[in-house]
């Protein structure tokens, strides 16, 4: 299993770097999966199509947004019934007006995931069919999962620190 996974990983890396000479930024190992693909948001849609149609990752399991303060990461987790494993697709977006092409045209299940990411992490998904608030009230102005959104004031945490 481990060897075949590594083989598949190398194969995937070769194919993708040939297909996307500029946008494909690499495939990092990630424990328990086929790895994490880093890609440029400019090629998002073609990459999604390629991943789904050519490499048979037909199930989009999760879309996650992560705020790295100076950048935002959007992370797609896809599953393949053929290869029986997860693959992560990660794109780094600028913190100023982060936006990426929607995946709903490729994986319809991305719909709610992207709505949630949009309202919680403030990442805009271009051409999304229905980008409304999902979990938060309509018109809510904050994005709670940004690091700048504090749950309480810092002075409440003032306690003595002991090293262990």
């Amino acid at each position: 299993m481990e060897a075949s996974a590594r083989l598949f990983q190398r194969d995937l890396m070769g194919k993708l770097s040939k297909r996307f000479p500029t946008g494909f930024l690499g495939l990092d190992p990630f424990p328990g999966t086929f790895g994490r693909i880093r890609f440029d948001p400019a090629i998002a849609l073609e990459l999604f199509r390629e991943i789904r149609d050519v490499h048979a990752f037909e199930h989009l399991a999760m879309v996650a947004g992560i705020d790295w303060v100076e950048r935002r990461e959007v992370l797609y987790t896809v599953w393949s019934d053929v290869h029986r494993g997860y693959l992560l697709l990660s794109a780094m977006l600028p913190a100023e007006r982060p936006h990426i092409e929607t995946a709903t045209t490729v994986w319809p299940s991305a719909n709610w995931h992207e709505r949630e990411t949009w309202e919680l992490v403030d990442i805009t998904f271009d051409h999304h069919p229905d980008l409304r608030n999902l979990l938060l009230p309509t018109g809510y102005q904050f994005h709670p999962l940004l690091r700048s959104f504090k749950l309480h004031e810092p002075e409440e945490l003032e306690v003595k620190v002991r090293h262990v």
Binding site: F30, A61, M62, L75, T77, W79, Y86, V159, H163, V164
Partner: peptide, 30 residues
């Protein structure tokens, strides 16, 4: 916060993706 102390820990960095078959279906945690 026990005895007014916050224990300072040195964690190794890392990232984890887990998937289980929850009673309702496939659940993921990142």
């Amino acid at each position: 916060g026990k005895e007014g102390y916050l224990l300072k820990r040195n964690y190794p960095k890392g990232v984890g993706l887990s998937a289980i078959e929850e009673p309702h279906g496939e659940a993921l945690a990142y």
